[in-house]
Design a protein around this nucleic acid. Structure first.
Lengths: 337, 337
DNA sequence: AAGGATTCCGCAAAGGTTTGCGTTGACAAT
DNA sequence: ATTGTCAACGCAAACCTTTGCGGAATCCTT
């Protein structure tokens, strides 16, 4: 097995100088004579020397790795956010290590443990839907390990975060429904401890009030974020004595499940029931009817989260900037009666 | 800034023993007395000691990192493969560092360079669509750095790879079309230097022959893999003097673009034109009509690729196992006349 | 010519871990 | 009393890099 990488020592041996001299020459240290500097730099270039990041990491006590924990990785939503994180990380010379919680609290806790063992310098996290206790994150916080939340955040922990304005977005949705003649607007929400569920509910209620509609509890159902349970939730709505004439789901998984179920029941979209999704996956445009949806600036969310992370590293403890991004409502066929 | 991680030295200092004793005690070395071993292990557990991977890496000259280069990361296809790779990598105590070539040869080359600088131990790669020269990979090969290709491979390089049987799959498609009464079967292909384009074309031609249909060059068009160019290619097919009555695309991006364009032209699927996709993204089921598609065992592809990688590490140079996975044709509405 | 200043480079430690080998002390055997 | 054996532990090198400090050689000054 030939030597894969060459070190300062190799250069030093070849040139019969000390390792420190080589190290200094490569950074143009004035202590080294111009001629020697040139000679060393030439050899380094010829031999394609690159510093060993492990040695540097050991010296500086940093791994240049960020742990990223997401509920899943195959969804466009998270994949796109990860891209955003990755872009900013790369600019700072950092790598990201991705772990998927699979929407499981247990796996989330394990991921934190494992990433900690790998000496990641900090975390960028989107909570799993099960997560309702936060000990594993509080531990990080008290150990002053940088932590940034995005999308699904823990409100009881004072850490930096980036979210979209769910209140505003759902208000828009509700008003949009109303302006299209809908009066019986239903909302399929997610687990109630999740900030996104709560915020969107607030916006929903406020939206109803603004439109002069009164809230009917039977139009508010919850589900976990699986397609199966979303289908069940939709069916629950459709077996009400009074049918809703508009439905929006917490995310697009729910919206698509709802769409299928509505069609299955022989109802027409948008004529019988208008439908709105959330997070605007690619499917939204290709489905029929195309789905009105709230676009999430996913890539930007990732970028901002990473930016917060690096601010966090620079500013040290106590830094807890919160960013709230605006989401746009993209109107398509599923709401145009 | 409190000390984040504790080291063997910390334990040694506390217990007034040497570092080497601590190290040995933690691995139950017989040289260390049982009592002392116990005491050391207890303190290590209490203080939550974990070995510093950087130090280990420096010692063993390994980073436990695999460089994964994909054309893009936000597609379900690649995301799912990455999941598969990640799962196997984790089992082996390895991490993956993901780089996206964005379908650009230039970025692919840069990614190889950068990952090499970070001392990844090897690569798992899916070629960018532009990639028609392979110097950057040959260099790896001659330096005995493990390299595995998946899906889009370089046939002139004798390295391990995992692909799906595109010939067989496209033969199935062609026959399926024929059995549903289609006679004018068109194929929207990708860049011609890509193995997947070539293989699928072979299957297409063989399939035609088996069905007793003769190949008409105007039914074979190519595009790069963008939605835009796929739309253009579709339009090209639809402006033929003779319209095709069946179309299949190299992948689902193309298929969806084709679907939109066909609808735009006021044609009906499958009645006027039957349509088949490739790689079976989630959209296939939600679109209308639902899309007949060739399912790719993406997760398994990732797993197999990672397995090959580790075999490669164990077996050293000259290892070049090739794996060919079978793909199933899932029949949905878009082909049922 | 002797002193100080300057130029140029090497030594060694630090970061954490593993491991071959050396060292120490106790005890048994001769 | 001397040698040998063995258990139990420490030293130091190696992996690679950075950097404060010390040292040697050269030059200039008086």
């Amino acid at each position: 097995m030939s030597k894969r990488h060459i070190s300062l020592k190799d250069l030093a041996n070849e040139l019969k100088v000390s390792i420190s001299t080589v190290s200094r020459a490569l950074k143009n240290h004035p202590d080294i004579s111009p001629e020697l500097t040139l000679k060393i730099q030439k050899l380094a270039a010829d031999w394609n020397y690159t510093p060993n990041p492990l040695a540097m990491g050991l010296l500086r006590q940093q791994t240049k790795m960020i742990g990223v924990i997401v509920p899943d990785i195959v969804t466009h939503f998270y994949a796109s956010i990860i891209s955003g994180i990755e872009e900013v990380a790369k600019q700072h010379g950092y790598y990201i290590v991705i772990a998927s919680s699979n929407e499981s609290l247990q796996k989330e806790i394990e991921s934190v443990e494992n990433l900690l063992k790998s000496r990641v310098e900090g975390f960028i996290v989107c909570l799993s839907q099960e997560t309702n206790k936060y000990d594993h994150f509080e531990k990080l916080n008290s150990n002053e390990i940088p932590l940034v939340f995005f999308d699904r955040i823990c409100e009881s922990l004072d850490v930096p975060s980036v979210v979209v304005d769910g209140v505003e977005a759902t208000k828009k949705i509700t008003r949009h429904f109303y302006e299209n003649g809908c009066k019986r607007i239903a909302y399929i929400s997610g687990p109630e401890h999740l900030n996104i569920s709560k915020n969107r509910k607030v916006g929903y209620l406020e939206g109803l009030k603004e439109c002069g509609l009164k809230f009917d509890p039977q139009f508010l159902v919850t589900c976990n974020l699986s397609t199966k349970d979303a289908t069940r939730a939709t069916r629950q709505l459709l077996t009400n004595k009074i049918l809703p004439d508009a439905i929006f789901g917490l995310n697009d998984t729910i919206a698509f499940a709802a769409m299928k179920e509505i069609k299955n029941q022989g109802l027409k979209i948008p004529d019988d029931i208008a439908l709105v999704g959330f997070t605007d996956e690619f499917h939204s445009t290709v489905v029929e009817p195309s789905l009105t949806s709230v676009t999430h600036p996913t890539f930007k969310m990732g970028q901002e989260a990473a930016n917060l992370f690096f601010k966090c590293i620079r500013n040290g403890k106590g830094f807890s900037e919160k960013i709230e991004l605006k989401a746009d409502l993209i109107i398509r066929e599923s709401t145009l009666k």
